[in-house]
Design a protein around this nucleic acid. Structure first.
Length: 649
RNA sequence: GCUGUUGUAGCUCAGUGGUAGAGCACUUCCUUGGUAAGGAAGAGGUCGGCGGUUCAAUCCCGCUCAACAGCUCCA
């Protein structure tokens, strides 16, 4: 007999060789029917693995990541089986599970695959899934594996085998398909009830562009039809929220081939939005002791030689600007930090001056590879809500706390309610590739961890993800439909203070090197606006939205009264316009609903007589007739209320 | 940058080896209408750019630019 310890610490005595599935059956029928994979002493295993020693056992269903991943990994095998049935010459590379679904990289031997083939593959997968084929594991020797795949003329699996040790090799077979795989897998194919082939794309063999391009087929599967339906609805919803689409519809920004790819043109409404955001942050920063600075868009090559960026990125950047003066070269600025370092150096600093916080909405230019450009999230010219804090080593933690406060203030104000903080630290096994003293690193890493802990942030620690110049803290937010985005970032930098020989005079009358902290709560205005659009689907908070109201005269006879109302509202700093087109009121309402205007003010004979407006709220509808003054206070109060609520959080 | 797909009016998109169409938007006129599309007329396109094949190219071919999907990358 052996002892099995379950997650609730209870134990079971079972015969040696009992499988996790049998234990599941002993617990409940429901669990036995839903279990997909088991964890045996920290190792994921098939449910039919005989347990030979005392073990801790945990069972996973579709509800857990482990269960999902296993189902998707097994689905990749199922898709491979379907592909092999449909395309006899196909060769397989690897087929892992992803965050949402799975893919398989295949070599179609010159054949092609298009979206029109998807249904055929899906049908075949479902047909095979219904056979309830068992995923059968077989441990074999390396030589046997080599023989097997040599017979199959499968160069890709042979390549994989080269890197595997004898004794660790296993094959999985379901139906007519056998794959080299370490597993684990779901018990049988019948758990896969709903199937969708999502996409097909090229991917280099082993991710190396010198290698052959394989066909990567993406798919997703579910244990219930309903879940597939919900997933497809989510994809539809994401499409509707696409900032490129909404940005065009709401006339926020555009691109022009003549201006150049990746160089956004902000339209009046988008500019209003962007500037409101900047004003909002600027105000918060002034209150937190930041000092606004502003620096030119170009700088002498020497600046970037000093910073080290020329050596690292020079060749892949926008190339230098020449002048009539022979040999003189300027570069478009790819970041603001070197400029800020020079500002720091413009006068001697005392320890009493620190921390110094230079803030600038600095527009920078980076020559991103063509294929990387994407709407506003990846562009070649963008404005960072940048600031550099020059601090004493003993101030790192305190400044981190303040920056975290600022970042959270921004997130709350914009209704991002869920976020996690990712702490990127040094690779503990390879400390040599980092610049800066061990002592400083330890202080900074400790400071970050303590600061996030004090703020009760949900954190993930990533070892080895730090930049070579310092550890960092990145904020990942979840948007309204659950997608994750990386927004704000805080980074410690030991490199630039060194390169620019930044100093301050300490209490001991000696020169010391300050620590530099880069931080950007939005990240960049472009990226943030993109994420915000997708988060709120273009329905911006009232304080931010480009037009807070539209006045809709019932007929042209009331245009003059509308004008009077507009003047009154403008005096109170409320933004909007009159829709004085020669259209019926129904048409105007429809159009302004589509334009997502928060408040429509309908004015006709009645309103003109009573000095009122009839409010119609976006989506909600008719809110009745009120005095113009009441509307003004409604707007002001709504905005104040909005901010107050958020302060509490 | 690599692979694939796409590029027709301001927008969304039909279409054809014999130099083009719809809906919306726009202009003018009629209409002055009370909570999601009133009516009529009109204007608008080197069919992304360059080159080739052809009697003839928006359509076929090559190159190029841009967008999209994926890969790789992101100070």
């Amino acid at each position: 007999m052996i002892t099995i310890t379950l997650p609730d610490s209870s134990t079971k005595q079972v015969e040696k060789g009992t499988t996790p599935m049998q234990i599941a059956e002993g617990i409940s029928r429901g669990l036995a029917q839903n279990a997909l994979v088991a964890k045996l002493n920290n190792e994921l295993v098939d449910l039919n693995t005989p347990i030979l020693t005392d073990s801790a056992l945990k069972l996973y269903t579709w509800e857990q990541e482990e269960g999902k991943n296993t189902l998707w990994h097994s689905s990749a095998h199922l898709m491979a089986e379907a592909l092999e049935a449909l395309y006899p010459n196909v060769k397989f590379w690897v087929g892992p599970a992803l965050e949402n679904g799975f893919y398989y990289d295949v070599d179609l031997n010159g054949g092609t695959l298009s979206t029109s083939d998807f249904e055929k593959i899906e049908q075949k997968m479902l047909e095979l899934a219904r056979k309830q084929n068992i995923f059968e594991r077989k441990n074999i020797s390396k030589q046997d594996a080599i023989n097997y795949f040599t017979d199959k003329q499968d160069i890709y699996k042979l390549d994989l085998l080269e890197r595997l040790d004898d004794g660790t090799i296993s094959l999985y077979t379901q139906g007519n398909f056998t794959d080299l795989c370490r597993g684990p897998h779901i018990p049988n194919t019948s758990f896969i009830k709903a199937v969708k082939v999502l996409n097909v794309a090229g991917a280099y063999w082993k991710g190396d562009e010198k290698n052959k391009m394989l066909t990567r087929i993406y798919g997703i599967t579910f244990p219930k039809d309903k879940e597939l339906k919900e997933y497809l609805e989510l994809l539809e919803e994401a499409k509707k929220r696409d900032h490129r689409k909404i940005g065009k519809e709401l006339e926020l920004f555009t691109f022009s081939e003549k201006v150049g790819s990746g160089l956004p043109l902000w339209l009046p409404k988008g500019t209003m939005l962007k500037e409101k955001l900047m004003q909002f942050l600027q105000k918060a920063q002034l209150e937190s002791g930041y000092l606004p600075v502003s620096t030119p868009h170009i700088a002498h090559k020497d600046l970037y030689i000093c910073s080290g960026h020329y050596e690292k990125y020079g060749a892949d950047s926008f190339q230098s600007i020449k002048t009539p003066h022979e040999g003189e070269e300027f570069f478009l600025k790819p970041m603001n930090c070197p400029h800020h370092c020079e500002i720091y150096k413009s006068s001697p600093k005392s320890y009493k001056d620190l921390p110094i916080r230079y803030a600038e909405f600095g527009t920078v230019y980076r020559y991103e590879q063509k294929g990387e450009l994407h709407g506003l999230t990846r562009v070649r010219g963008f404005t960072q809500d940048d600031a550099h804090l020059f601090v004493r080593p003993d101030q790192v933690k305190e400044e981190f706390l303040k920056v975290i406060d600022l970042v959270l203030y921004v997130f709350n104000a914009l209704d991002f309610k869920e976020y996690t903080a990712q702490i990127s630290l040094r690779d503990p096994n390879n400390k040599t590739k980092y610049i800066g003293t061990d002592e400083n690193w330890i202080t900074a890493e400790q400071s970050i961890m303590e600061a996030t802990k004090e703020k009760n942030l949900k954190t993930v620690i990533e070892y080895g993800e730090a930049a070579f110049y310092g550890p960092k803290l990145d904020f990942m937010v979840k948007d309204a439909i659950g997608r994750k985005w990386q927004l704000g970032t805080i980074q410690v930098d030991y490199n630039l203070p060194e390169r620019f020989e930044l100093e301050y005079v300490g209490f001991d009358n000696q020169k010391h090197r300050p620590v530099m902290i880069h931080r950007a709560p939005f990240g960049s205005m472009e990226r943030f606006v993109a994420v915000l659009i997708e988060h709120c689907k273009g329905n911006f908070p009232l304080w931010l939205t480009p037009n807070q109201f539209a006045i809709l005269p019932v007929s042209e006879k009331f245009n003059n009264y509308a004008k009077k109302v507009l003047d009154l509202l403008k005096k109170s700093d409320i933004r909007g316009f009159i829709d004085d087109r020669n259209e019926k009121i129904g048409k105007k309402i429809r159009d302004q609903e589509i334009n997502k205007i928060p408040y429509m003010l309908i004015v006709g004979e009645k309103e003109q007589e009573n000095n009122t407006v009839s409010i119609r709220e976006h989506i909600i509808g008719d809110k009745g007739e009120v005095a113009v003054e009441s509307f003004i206070s409604l707007i002001i109060e709504t905005i104040e209320q909005d901010f107050k609520l958020k302060q509490i959080i």
